[in-house]
Write a protein that binds this DNA or RNA. Structure first.
Length: 518
RNA sequence: GGGGCGGUAGCUCAGCCGGUUAGAGCAGGGGACUCAUAAUCCCUGGGUCGCGGGUUCGAGUCCCGCCCGCCCUACCA
């Protein structure tokens, strides 16, 4: 146990601006990264951009600019989205720029070659530029690429091939033994049945002509560049300094407890079959988890540029704020299945859960401590059934949310956290502190003290619990209690250190949003 | 064609190896309260659990067939 966790997003092509699907994967990976970090792991969260793609070359040609110019321009939108969504990305790989990546991909290729897994042969196939992938006739729909609905081009040239076929048994073994877990289980079934169906060797290079001279050269053959997926997959180790045998590589990959890839359902095969096989060939440890999310539809329709229904996540953040977007993506969209986006639903969940639920709870608690005890958290008195029930809910929500996150299920985690939000609100009404405050007998005052202490404890715990999902709100809540995340531990008794603390009436953490009227 | 995953209250979903009157959140209806972001709390859910058979003392929960949606995979004519 090294206590280290590696988590990555896929690296998108930067031939266009990011859409909501990118945002989904980003926040899912970010929540997991923050979760593990909070559990005490040393976490490295990596993202990046896939720039060596023919798709980028063609987009640039259409715009009449250089490929370099295109990727340099577009990558900024992704970096900006990462900021807008408040992601704690530790390292961002640019595959056409980073020297570690370019050298690393080359070294990776050499290792596969050394294992005897690379050979060249004449090949002819139907290639979809949009997918950067060869298709068999049978996979086409009316002769067109099923993803892009364009006619693939017939390509014939000498290419290098990877002996994927050799790794069929080994891959089944790592997946079935659980060494490489694919989430959810249904996706794992897909992968194993695909492998059982037989693995053919795959083309891993293309002529420099077809690539328009863009891409990472194949070592020892200036006429060929690497197939974009081959260099792209190696970004995960290259971003850690694989080629330099860097300390980061040893720590966050080779010796890490968890090596996690968050991916979309469209690229499972690359991450759960090709990439592990490449790693086996290069004799590098495999990922431990591949977590597969679905796609986001918009009012039931697939996001597509031609339909003009692409939602710009950056714009969305500007309209409703980072918390609303993060919360919606994490709490409402299934982590594993396709989800539907609707602005109305996003606003509705924000208002009911964040503004009316948690936000209002923080307001009323801080307000009562300020009003009834001059902002000083009191010592508690005798504990009764209602207090114990609250304590139990704190423990249950904490345990359940933590366990859910270890299953990559942020939606479930948030649901269990909100059990505590509701329970705490109900606890307040059950105690009616405003009545206790008016009663001047000692007994009532003691109950009030106990109640306020427990409330502050619950709010503190909630602030801690939401930190992977809503980091800035978490800071705000803990800040209003004079706490920072670092000073709060799950291990310590949950009311420790609270009596005597000075707190202030918190400003609205989640101001209500108005539904867009149109 | 083969395989997989879904089809549960208006909406989004829970329901593990079959077992008392099928659940949650939101929305809707009624009531209470005032600390709070007109927020909160309490009460309120007669849903053919896609359809039809079957196994069982008993089935959303297992078996068979069918319908619908999505996905993976392959082409037998």
């Amino acid at each position: 146990m090294s206590g280290a966790t590696f988590i990555s997003t896929t690296i998108p092509y930067v031939n266009a601006k990011p859409h909501l699907g990118h945002a989904l994967e980003y926040v899912q990976a970010d929540a997991y990264a923050r979760h593990r970090a909070r559990q005490g792991d040393d976490v490295l969260f990596m993202s990046g951009s896939d720039e060596n793609s023919l798709k980028n070359v063609l987009s640039a040609e259409r715009l009449n600019i250089s490929t370099r110019e295109l990727v340099d321009t577009n990558v900024v939108y992704f970096e900006r989205l990462i900021e807008h969504l408040d992601l704690r990305v530790d390292h961002f790989v640019r595959t056409s720029v980073d020297i570690d990546h370019i050298k690393g991909a080359t070294e990776f290729w050499r290792r596969m070659e050394k294992s005897g897994d690379i050979y060249s042969k004449e090949y002819e196939g139907l290639y979809c530029v949009g997918c950067e992938q060869f298709y068999g006739e049978a996979e086409l729909v009316e002769g067109k690429c099923p993803e892009h609905l364009t006619v693939p081009e017939l390509v014939r040239e000498r290419n290098y091939f990877f002996r994927l076929s050799r790794y069929q048994d080994a891959l089944l073994e790592v997946i079935e033994s659980g060494a490489l877990a694919v989430w959810p289980a249904s996706r794992m079934n897909e992968v194993t049945s695909f492998i059982r169906g037989g693995l053919a060797d795959i083309s891993i290079s293309r002529s420099i002509e077809r690539a328009r001279g863009w891409g990472i050269p194949v070592p020892g053959d200036p006429g060929q560049v690497m197939y974009v997926w081959i260099d792209a997959l190696t970004n995960y180790v290259n971003g850690l300094g694989f080629v330099r045998d860097a300390e980061g590589y040893h720590k966050y990959w080779e010796n890490a407890d968890r090596r996690v890839h968050a991916v979309g359902k469209g690229v499972i095969r690359f991450h759960a079959v090709y990439w592990p096989a490449m790693l086996l060939s290069a004799r590098v440890p495999l990922p431990t988890d591949v977590v597969v999310h679905g796609y986001i539809t918009l009012s039931g329709q697939k996001l597509s540029k031609s339909l003009g229904n692409v939602v710009d996540p950056a714009e969305l953040v500007q309209q409703v704020g980072t918390d609303a977007v993060r919360y919606y993506l994490l709490a409402d969209i299934s982590p594993f299945l396709d989800g539907d986006f609707s602005e109305e639903r996003m606003v509705s969940r924000y208002n009911s859960d964040l503004a009316n639920g948690l936000g209002n709870l923080v307001s009323r608690v801080t307000s009562m401590v300020t009003r009834y005890r001059d902002g000083i958290v009191p010592e508690g008195g005798a504990v009764t059934e209602a207090d114990t029930a609250l304590v139990n809910q704190v423990a249950a929500s904490t345990a359940e949310a933590t366990a859910a996150m270890d299953r990559f299920d942020g939606r479930e985690a948030l649901a269990r956290i909100w059990d505590l939000v509701r329970h705490t609100n109900a606890y307040i009404d059950g105690r009616a502190p405003w009545h206790l405050a008016k009663a001047d007998d000692a007994a009532s005052q003691e109950v009030l003290d106990t109640t306020l202490l427990h409330l502050v404890g619950a709010v503190r715990r909630l602030g801690w619990l939401i930190s992977p999902f809503l980091p800035s709100a978490s800071d705000a809540i803990l800040g209003s209690l004079g706490e920072s995340l670092k000073s709060v531990s799950v291990a310590e008794p949950w009311l420790d250190g609270l009596p005597g603390c000075g707190i202030e009436k918190a400003p609205a953490i989640f101001p209500r949003l108005e539904l867009p009227v149109d």
